[in-house]
Amino acid sequence: MNSPLDAPHISRPGSSLAAGAMALGVHVLFLLLLVFGVSWQTRHPAPVMVDIWDALPPLPPPRPHPQPEIVPPEPVKLPVPKTEPAPIVKELPLKAPDIALEKKKADAEHMQKREAQHEAEQKARAEAARVEAEAARKAHEKQLAEQKKRELLRQMEEEDLVRRMADETAANEARQARLAEARAAAGKRQAEVARIVGQHRDLISAKVRSNTRLPDNLPGNIEVRFLVKLLPTGEVVSVRLTRSSGNAAYDAAVERAIEKSSPLPLPTERDARAEFVPELSFVHRPKE
């Protein structure tokens, strides 16, 4: 005989809203702890590599001023002096006056008129002579003037030439000076580059040295050579042994040190960097 009163009570686990809220609260708390409690490297500054330098860094090399372009010396165009065609001196035609002819005529006609004619003749002759003299004088004068003019012209030309020559020599000298200067600058730059190269060789050497763990009992100051392939950034691409020191442990230690030293300190100067990139012959000794 079963009555509903006899039915057993089955306690069902209740789903509590408060418990759910508290569970959520715990998770939010944990999340906050993670986000704010753990520094996720966001606040750390980037690692800084420090090189310890013995000497002060070199001053930034002077901006390589644009190499003065060495233009092939342009031949100074000497305008060919326009030597005016020598003026042809117009010889005044010293025509002999047709006196003789007239005389013959007059002879044939009238002897009587000879006197008068003679006189006239003389007069005419005098006149002619005068005219002639005049003409000669004029011609001479003209010739003189011409000559003077020519002289003057020539002189002017000569002066011009001299001036031009002077200009040219001056220009030549300036060019020479420029060239010399450029040579001197190039020499100085070369020296500067060599200095930077030397400095960076020392820096690289020092960096590798600081990373080298030397094996024990080395036989003296042995030398090892490597060919190091570098990227322009200084990162080591490959290290190849070119001449062993004879001590394999030492070779391996230096090779490891070179790889560990990547990136190597390279000069910023393009010309100087060309000494290191893409290949650098590296020599290492246990002691300097």
């Binding site: 209740g14 789903s15 408060a18 418990a19």
Partner: peptide, 18 residues
């Protein structure tokens, strides 16, 4: 895991009250 964690915490609190 987040779901499992949520559920387990929920049950932990339910059990705690019960």
């Amino acid at each position: 895991l987040l779901f499992a964690s949520m559920m387990s915490w929920w049950y932990i609190f339910i059990k705690m009250f019960a």
